[in-house]
């Protein structure tokens, strides 16, 4: 990597930093309870809850920091925070 004059940086390049390693609690998805409201994916500060075409979500454990907002705000308790196994 050479520094450009002015130090400009490429977009979206934080993806190399896998923040999933920060996680203490892990979101566990109960797909059967999910009503596809999309609140979890909208709120996730790390864009790690991704809505699929069918409306269900998948979790991106490479980046999920385990903040628990998705689980706390889920209106149907379809997400449960469980201790991360390392």
């Amino acid at each position: 990597m050479k520094i450009a004059i002015g130090g400009m940086v490429e977009p979206g390049s934080t993806r190399v930093n896998k923040t999933g390693s920060w996680r203490i609690y892990r979101p566990l998805y109960h797909r059967d309870k999910c009503i596809k409201c999309g609140i979890c994916s909208m709120l996730c500060p790390d864009s790690s809850v991704k809505a699929q075409e069918d409306g269900y979500v998948i979790f991106d454990y490479e980046y999920c920091k385990g903040c628990g907002i998705c689980a706390y705000e889920c209106p149907k308790d379809a997400i449960e925070m469980v201790l991360e196994e390392k």
Binding site: I3, A4, M8, V9, P11
Partner: peptide, 25 residues
């Protein structure tokens, strides 16, 4: 200029530099 604030080529300007790169700037 070679680089400028451009919605078609969205670069980041004015990052913060830690001790591993500041000297080179």
């Amino acid at each position: 200029p070679e680089h400028f604030l451009d919605t078609k080529n969205p670069k980041t300007f004015g990052s913060f530099a830690d001790p591993s790169v500041y000297t080179e700037f």
